[in-house]
């Protein structure tokens, strides 16, 4: 089993809306690849109280579906905290969660956003073919790099 002691991986999305489930499918794929499940978190959206959670980790990955085109079908980018506020109680962007974490807990986990391009968003529990392909490539790259 591949242990993720100081690392948390958060899959964001909704697997009943086709490619919006890419974040969750990424976590499923990690489990199949032997990663320990305790450090994999499935979420519909990020909320303010997730600040408390990520403050406990050295490294955090956020994995989410992306509606706009990405060159390789996925992109892994390093995140920096954002002071911009587009606050809703229903969803908070990862970079704002990082900012809150730094402000309240004085913790700066190294954070990455893994964007995976999706195409279909209907009421269905199945990824589109192209999104599945992007997912495979994203998993390969993640395992290779990290």
């Amino acid at each position: 089993m591949k242990k993720l002691d100081n690392t948390l991986i958060i899959g964001i999305g909704n697997n009943t809306r086709q490619d919006d489930g890419l974040g969750w499918c990424f976590l499923d794929a990690l489990v199949k690849n032997g990663f320990n499940e305790e450090k994999l978190l499935y979420k519909y959206q990020l909320m303010v109280e997730d600040t408390d959670l990520i403050a406990k980790y050295k490294t955090v990955f956020f994995v989410d579906a992306n509606k706009t085109a990405l060159n390789e079908g996925f992109l892994i980018e390093k995140l920096t905290p954002s002071k911009k506020v587009s606050f809703s109680t229903h969803a908070v962007p990862p970079n704002q969660i990082l900012n809150l974490c730094e402000t309240i807990y004085h913790k700066k986990p190294t954070a990455y956003l893994i964007k995976i391009e999706g195409y279909e968003w209907d009421f269905k529990i199945e990824l589109s073919k192209k999104a599945s392909e992007n997912l495979k490539n994203a998993i390969k790259a993640f395992i290779k790099e990290f």
């Binding site: 303010v48 109280e49 408390d52 002071k83 506020v85 704002q96 402000t103 309240i104 807990y105």
Partner: peptide, 22 residues
């Protein structure tokens, strides 16, 4: 007028708010 500003100026209040909701 938002939680981020509350956190900046009154960190303990914001932290308690987060943990109480949690």
């Amino acid at each position: 007028r938002n939680i981020v500003a509350v956190a900046s100026e009154n960190m303990e209040l914001a932290k308690k708010g987060i943990l109480m909701r949690k």
